[in-house]
Structures are given as structure tokens and as C-alpha cells.
């Protein structure tokens, strides 16, 4: 099982500090949620994990190896990323997009049967097999998102980084995607790190939460310890009320403006 150690990473865009001294760890089979208000550094943190941005201070260790020592291609074999929005205005077919996920694992361009099999399999599990021949430019938001997740899985990553995977989806598809991700992390022992705006979705599906505020970790840990109305009030500047759902043995949060 893989382990990921984030040790004291900081990143600034030129002079503006985006994240500061972030430390946490995760292991395969876990879902870690990153929550926080706009501009708190959620996406930046996510991008620093696979060195899409190179943090100026700190290290990211995957199974004890400093990933700054790995080539981009090797990193792409370990980390799969689903970005916030994928703007592709070229008529690639669904299959072609998913096969691009195989790029880090093939030498030049020669796909083997194995690559097609894997692409087909990940399309099956994401329910995108019928999109094989559909052009990306003609897909709906939900179809695109599921297809990008399929491409990401075709990379056969050990860590899955998701930036607001449910942003453009309706409620049914939001649950579908999250259920699916949950299932994946358990089944394939993937470490999933997901940035989300939707606190209730995060409560439902994450094992651990990291609450960011102004680029620093405000608090982190088990969902129950992080989601405390007091914390949310301080970070989001809204009134938060915790409501227990006895039937499902879970809870959710209702927000209202600060008085």
C-alpha cells in the first residue's frame, strides 16, 4: 500500500503567498478532502502535490521517495489528475481522449492490445463506453467529466487528485461520481485527494478533511473533528448548524449568513 507524505510545502506566485507550510499524510484506500473558502489555496495545494506547480519549500514523498527526483513521465504514472474544467475544442473522440491516459506508459505511440483493454475497462466502470465514438466537443458537462475521470484511471495511478470533480454536475451525477470514487479508493486501494466546495458531499464521502484558511491548514483530521460549527464559522464567515441524521448515522451542515 502506498503512502504519501506532504512535508511543510509552501508555494508563492511571484510575491503572493498561496500556501504556507502544509503538512499531512495519506495512504492507499483513503479519501482526503480539501475544503476552504475561495482563494484559500485548495487548487494550488492540489497542483503542488504532483509538482504541476513546484513548491518553493518542502517536499512530497511518495513511498519515501522525493518526487522532485522523478521525471514528469514517472510522476504521471503515479498521479492521475482530474482538473476543474477541461477545455478541449478539438474533435477528439471519447476513445482517443481516454487512450491519451496511456501516454505516460507507452514508449512512443504504439498502443498494444493491453492499452485498448484498459481503456475499455475504465470506460466501462465510468459508464462512458457508449461515448467511445462521440466527439468531445459534442458531450455534455457530465459526460466530459466522467470521460476525463476515465482518462485519469487509464493512467493506472496510485494517487488520484480531483479538483472539484462535481462542479458542473447535477445532484444525481454528483452522487454517482462520488460513489464511484469511493468505490474505487476501496477496491483498488487508491489514495484519493479531492478539492470540494460542497461541504456536505465531503462529509459524506471523505475519511479525512483538511480545512484551509488563507493558505494554511486551519485544522485537519477526521471528519467529525474538523466539521465543527465553530471552525466553519471562523473560516467561511457564515453561520453553520450541524444536523444529525439518526437513520443514516451521519450528519450534515446547514449554512446561513452571519448575524
Amino acid at each position: 500500500m502506498i503512502t504519501l507524505n506532504i512535508k511543510g510545502i509552501s508555494f508563492s506566485y511571484k510575491t503572493i503567498k498561496a500556501i504556507e507550510d502544509i503538512t499531512f499524510e495519506g495512504k492507499g484506500g483513503e479519501i482526503i478532502g480539501i475544503i476552504g473558502p475561495n482563494g484559500s489555496g485548495k487548487s494550488t495545494l492540489l497542483r503542488c502535490i504532483n509538482r504541476n506547480l513546484s513548491p518553493q519549500i518542502g517536499t512530497v514523498l511518495l513511498d519515501g521517495t522525493d518526487i522532485s527526483k522523478l521525471s514528469r513521465n514517472n510522476i504521471a504514472c503515479k498521479f492521475g489528475v482530474v482538473p476543474q474544467n477541461s477545455i478541449i475544442n478539438l474533435p477528439f473522440s471519447g476513445m482517443e481522449i481516454v487512450l491519451m491516459g496511456r501516454y505516460p506508459r507507452i514508449k512512443r505511440y504504439e498502443y498494444k492490445d493491453e492499452d485498448f483493454n484498459i481503456a475499455e475497462e475504465v470506460m466501462k466502470v465510468t459508464g462512458t463506453l457508449e461515448l467511445s465514438n462521440k466527439l468531445f466537443t459534442e458531450m455534455s458537462g457530465g459526460e466530459k467529466q466522467r470521460l476525463i475521470i476515465a482518462r485519469c484511471l487509464a493512467q493506472e495511478p496510485e494517487v488520484l487528485l480531483l479538483d472539484e470533480p462535481t462542479l458542473h454536475l447535477d445532484i444525481k451525477h454528483q452522487f454517482e461520481i462520488m460513489e464511484f470514487i469511493h468505490h474505487l479508493s476501496r477496491e483498488k486501494k487508491l489514495l484519493v485527494i479531492v478539492v470540494s466546495h460542497d461541504i456536505n458531499l465531503a462529509i459524506n464521502y471523505c475519511d479525512k478533511l483538511i480545512l484551509l484558511s488563507d493558505g494554511k491548514i486551519f485544522t485537519a483530521g477526521n471528519v467529525k473533528d474538523v466539521i465543527i460549527p465553530e471552525n466553519l464559522r471562523k473560516v467561511f464567515h457564515v453561520e453553520a448548524k450541524l444536523i444529525k441524521d439518526i437513520e443514516k448515522k451521519s450528519f450534515y451542515i446547514v449554512f446561513s449568513p452571519l448575524n
Binding site: I75, A76, S86
Partner: peptide, 9 residues
């Protein structure tokens, strides 16, 4: 960004 995530320097 995506190119980078998919292993392109």
C-alpha cells in the same frame, strides 16, 4: 497543465 499531468515536460 493537463499535458504536464500526463507526463510531458
Amino acid at each position: 497543465r493537463t499535458a504536464m499531468d500526463l507526463g510531458v515536460d
